[in-house]
């Protein structure tokens, strides 16, 4: 999306447990864990299911689609490296699979609506590809 790579933007601090998530992003898709016992989807990545506490979860390709639960237009960034990108939009997306995540929303301020359908778009605004979300394209 952006032609302004900025090395001081904070990259994700990847752990051995979250590694598959970021490998998925590198490959262009959103991966989520699903519990092998209760079959609920899980985010953030972890080794134990927060629903049934089972210790076996499997990484699967997720839809990458969801709805916008809430958003904020940032005028004063919490991190100095983000200030030059203001105003920008962050939001919470409830994924079709159930979990919610915080993300950067690539929707114009005036087009934002509650519960709007959104889909993932991999973006490289900083040094690392990240799952941003944009308005879902109409399918025929």
């Amino acid at each position: 999306m952006s032609q302004h790579p900025n090395i001081s933007l904070p990259s994700p601090t990847i752990t051995p447990v979250s590694q598959p998530f970021w490998e998925g992003i590198q490959a262009g898709h959103l991966s989520l864990q699903q519990c092998d016992r209760c079959e609920q989807w899980v985010f953030y990545p972890r080794e134990h299911c927060p629903h049934c506490f089972h210790d076996s979860l499997t990484w699967k390709k997720a839809s990458g689609r969801g709805r916008l639960k809430t958003w904020s237009v940032i005028h004063r960034a919490g991190h100095p490296a983000w200030q030059e990108h203001t105003p920008y939009v962050v939001g919470v997306v409830v994924l079709e699979e159930g979990p919610s995540l915080l993300t950067h929303v690539l929707v114009d301020e005036t087009d934002l609506t509650y519960n709007m359908k959104v889909e993932m778009e991999i973006s490289e605004i900083g040094p690392h590809p990240l799952p941003f979300f944009k308005k879902q394209e109409e399918t025929i």
Partner: peptide, 21 residues
């Protein structure tokens, strides 16, 4: 982590953003 890993890289740091949401 996990906030450092999954919130901060998206431009969401600090309490102002969270309470705005």
């Amino acid at each position: 982590n996990p906030i450092r890993e999954f919130d901060v890289p998206f431009g969401a740091s600090g309490a102002n953003t969270s309470y705005a949401l």
